[in-house]
């Protein structure tokens, strides 16, 4: 299978605050890579770095073989990378319709309208909320709107930063089901940062364990889940 995104010896952070060190990671087409690790281990920073929201001190990032290390986020978005941050992943003050239009930013109007129609079939509840301000949606609905917004651009790679954080169990289950559906039915490649390690490792193909900004493990998600020592020390997974 072809490589979608690859980080080579990446060092990155915010200004002078060096957060991730010599990170190597590779994600193949159609794969779900789960990124886990203790709080402050650099999981979210890794996603932001892949999307161009941090300062990269050294190393490089390749997307479909092209070096995108110095490209700004809006160019990466146009290349087919979607990033869904943990919070602030929708525009709360805009209506649902405006949020979806924003997601189509730069597309021709006829194409945008077609994409919005298409995505509304995947997320039918949004049809009844189009005129509502996004801030009136529930937490789970917001995550699904964020997903819908990412999908209208037909991205090749979706990067989720803790999509189930703060959600009620039922809403969290629905969000996880949608993530799996994205891979199974639409063939998307996914990087999924998750605090609930057990849940994500059960669903993912491969896993990346981050500890203190470094990669402590990169391999099969099931094997990591089965590794009692790593699970106990870093993930709070009881053996």
């Amino acid at each position: 299978m072809s490589t979608v995104i690859k980080a080579e010896k990446v060092n990155a952070g915010y200004g002078r605050f060096h957060i991730i060190f010599d990170v190597d990671v590779e994600v193949k087409k159609g794969e779900i890579l789960v990124v886990v690790g203790p709080n402050g281990s650099g999981k979210s920073t890794l996603l932001k770095t892949m999307f161009g929201l941090t300062r990269i001190y050294s190393g490089r990032i390749l997307f479909e073989g092209r070096d995108i290390t110095r490209e700004p986020p809006h160019v990466r978005a146009k290349r087919g990378i979607a990033y869904l941050p943990q919070t602030g992943n929708i525009f709360a003050e805009l209506s649902v319709r405006e949020n979806l239009k924003m997601a189509c930013y730069g597309l021709e109007q006829s194409i945008a309208e077609e994409r919005i129609r298409e995505v509304l079939e995947f997320f039918p509840f949004l049809k009844y909320k189009l005129s509502n301000k996004a801030k009136t949606l529930s937490g789970g609905q917001r995550q699904l709107l964020a997903m819908a917004m990412a999908l209208v651009r037909r991205p090749k790679l979706l990067m989720f930063d803790e999509p189930t954080a703060g959600l009620a169990p039922k809403a969290a289950k629905e969000v996880v089901e949608k993530i799996l559906w994205l891979r199974e039915d639409l063939g998307k490649t996914i990087i999924w940062v998750e605090q609930n390690a057990k849940l994500a490792l059960e669903k993912g193909d491969n896993a990346l364990l981050m500890v203190s900004g470094r990669v402590a493990y990169h391999g099969s998600a099931r094997e990591l889940l089965a590794d009692r020592e790593l699970g106990r020390r870093y993930l709070g997974v009881k053996g």
């Binding site: 809006h74 525009f91 805009l94 405006e98 924003m102 930013y105 651009r153």
Partner: peptide
């Protein structure tokens, strides 16, 4: 609309392809 979106969340607006 992109301007309003940028005012609210410039990082996300950038993620949507807004310059």
């Amino acid at each position: 609309v992109a301007m309003r979106a940028t005012i609210e969340n410039p990082d996300l607006a950038s993620a949507m392809g807004v310059n």
